[in-house]
Amino acid sequence: MALRILLGLWLAVVIVLGLGLPMVAEPQHWYDLPIVPGLEEKARIIFFHVPTAWLSVVGFVAALVYGIRYLRSRSIEDDSRSAASAGLGFLFCLLATVTGAIWAKSSWGTYWNWDPRETSIFVLLLIYGAYFALRSAVEVEEKRASLAAVYAVIAGVTMPFFVFIMPRVIASLHPEPILNAQGKIHMNTAMLLVFLASLAGFTGLYYWMWKVYVKVEQLRRRIQQPTGG
């Protein structure tokens, strides 16, 4: 309970700071954010867009790991953990896509232009969609769990190819290569702090939602279980 309130407060502070701290050309006070060339005030979306994108990947990896654990342990608990991760990953993937498209509209002038990042998040969305389509098409619980895990494994091994393929197909406009040009992050301390706080806050949110999700599944299974005399 206390942790939940703390999490809510933490995220509220992050949101207020992320939107409220002044952006100035030459930061002098500890609370000044620097102006990112070409992005200006729009750079604030980084505090919300990057955590959601990060969590959509975390959700996928967690679904994959729990899927593999299910294949080894055959315990239905692991399957509901895997499904919960995928569900949340899908939610955050949608958020990352939407925030990214809004950012793209304001910076590049179009909601969608098949930038490498946009393509890979789109593929992630498709994989999540396919994963849930598969889950809903199998009635037997054990079969559903193992098929979903196998699909996650196959998707997991083909995903990394995009890292190599996309640069060959199209050049990127994504600010990460620009913000991160010399291999170090161009953020001052205030910006970095808010950014990391936001990353931690959203990850905490993800973890809390994940635990609730798993708990709900557990209770549902207990209710549905025939209580034999």
């Binding site: 498709l126 969609g129 396919a130 083909t158």
Partner: peptide, 9 residues
């Protein structure tokens, strides 16, 4: 539906 994301690379 299942094949497309896998075959896209």
């Amino acid at each position: 539906v299942l094949s497309f994301p896998i075959l896209l690379p």
